[in-house]
Amino acid sequence: MHISAAVVQEVGAPFSMADVELQEPASDEVLVQIAGVGICHTDIAVKEGHLPFQLPGVLGHEGSGTVVSVGGDVTAVAVGDHVAISFNSCGMCPRCAMGESAYCHNFLEYNFSGVRSDGTSGLTSAGTKLGANFFGQSSLATHALAHERNVVKLPSDVPVELVGPLGCGIQTGAGAVFNSLDVQPESAVVVAGAGAVGLSAVMAAVVREASSIIAVDLHESRRTLATELGATHTIDPQAGPLADQIREIVPAGVDYAIDTTAVTPVVEQLLASLGMRGMLGLIGVPADPDAVFSVGLFQPPLLGLTIRGIVEGDSDPQTFIPYLLDLHRQGKFPFDKLITTMPMAQINEAVAAQHRGEVLKVVLTP
């Protein structure tokens, strides 16, 4: 079928809307008519060449919409179902068998290779194969091919056009608190970067009843929103050394620190802000893949610190996305306050607005 998609022709090029050919779903695939798709930092990182993907190609990995066709082996969803689409995984490796699909041994192949497992793409333009199957979906388009493993059936009362970011960015921030670090009640948490991922962590820390929730961001508007969402304190990192500002609030050091910035000096300051047995969770994708930060030989063992890399918030989308939606239904996780909708035709303007900090999370609607 012919669809419209946002194509990246080469590294550094803008998105360009184009008519492309989409194949029929394979036996394990689900064809979804996209109602909304979030723009995630990972999409931009690929576009700028910081992460591998076959170009020209179609990105997008926070899609949601309505099932319009299914492959012959699909039983989990049916035509007409509303779904959110999350990351893909193999389902067969040791980590998938343990229910830890975010750490699938074949994660790069299933999410970044640009092709299906059989080497086909599913997307072509003027006879040229496009990179597709990005996070098992390539949903910056009017329609996307996903897989039975990475679509999550939604309740009928959910605003389907808004839930796509639960499949990656919002899931990652919230999951860092609920799953990866398992933040405990009455603890102290600092979150660096009050974008959609960071503010999702803030909202999750509120649910976990942390006593001190500190949000760090350069933008005053984001610090204000963090307070509205439940942060007990906010910090402007330009106002002084970050670790000193954090310890003015929690003199003994925080129990948990979450970094969404991947900025080396920020990570080092977060590490210095941890108290005994503190945990540092790393979420951000650095612009430089060889970026490093200083840990110190004795500090982590002396203080019993843990430094934890986090992928997708250690989440099982099939259970975690419904959990977040249930919290939202109770008024405890207002993720919709993070979202601004824009037409997909304005994708480059949306990317620029997110980069300038004017909006937190853009969801594009076809």
Rank of each mutant, 00 (worst) to 15 (best):
T124S: 15
A262H: 03
F107S: 02
N150K: 04
V190W: 12
V362D: 00
P52C: 02
D28G: 07
M92A: 14
V189H: 02
T42C: 12
D255V: 00
G278A: 03
T128Y: 12
V115C: 14
T75A: 15
V158R: 06
R356C: 08
A287V: 13
R277A: 14
P94Q: 11
T124N: 06
G164R: 01
A353E: 06
S212E: 15
S187W: 05
T128L: 14
I347P: 12
T306K: 14
V46M: 09
Q346K: 13
P94C: 01
I246F: 10
A6T: 02
E220A: 08
A5R: 02
L280A: 08
L22C: 06
V197K: 07
T124A: 07
E358I: 08
L162N: 12
N106F: 02
A26V: 10
D118K: 06
M92L: 14
S125Q: 15
Q238F: 11
T142M: 13
K332H: 10
P265T: 04
L166P: 05
V263R: 07
A13V: 11
L274D: 05
T260H: 07
S125P: 03
F135I: 06
I214C: 05
R222F: 04
G127Q: 09
G357R: 07
S121K: 05
P300I: 11
N111Y: 11
V254E: 07
E10M: 08
L51N: 03
Q171D: 07
A97T: 14
Q299V: 14
G91C: 00
L31T: 09
Q23I: 10
T224K: 10
Q346V: 04
V151T: 05
Q184P: 10
Y103V: 05
V295H: 03
D336E: 15
L154E: 01
E24P: 11
H61W: 11
I214T: 08
L145V: 13
Q137C: 03
V295M: 06
D288M: 06
L31N: 07
V191N: 01
E248W: 11
Y256L: 02
G12P: 10
H2E: 15
N111F: 12
A78Q: 14
M276E: 14
V74S: 07
V79P: 07
S200D: 04
I246Y: 08
I235K: 13
N88Y: 12
N111A: 04
A188Y: 04
A353N: 00
G193F: 11
G49C: 04
V191F: 02
Q23G: 06
S315L: 00
L324F: 03
A84Y: 02
P317Y: 05
Q269V: 04
S273V: 09
I44F: 00
L270N: 07
M203H: 09
G175Y: 05
T306G: 14
V190F: 12
I214H: 09
M279G: 12
L338R: 08
L360G: 13
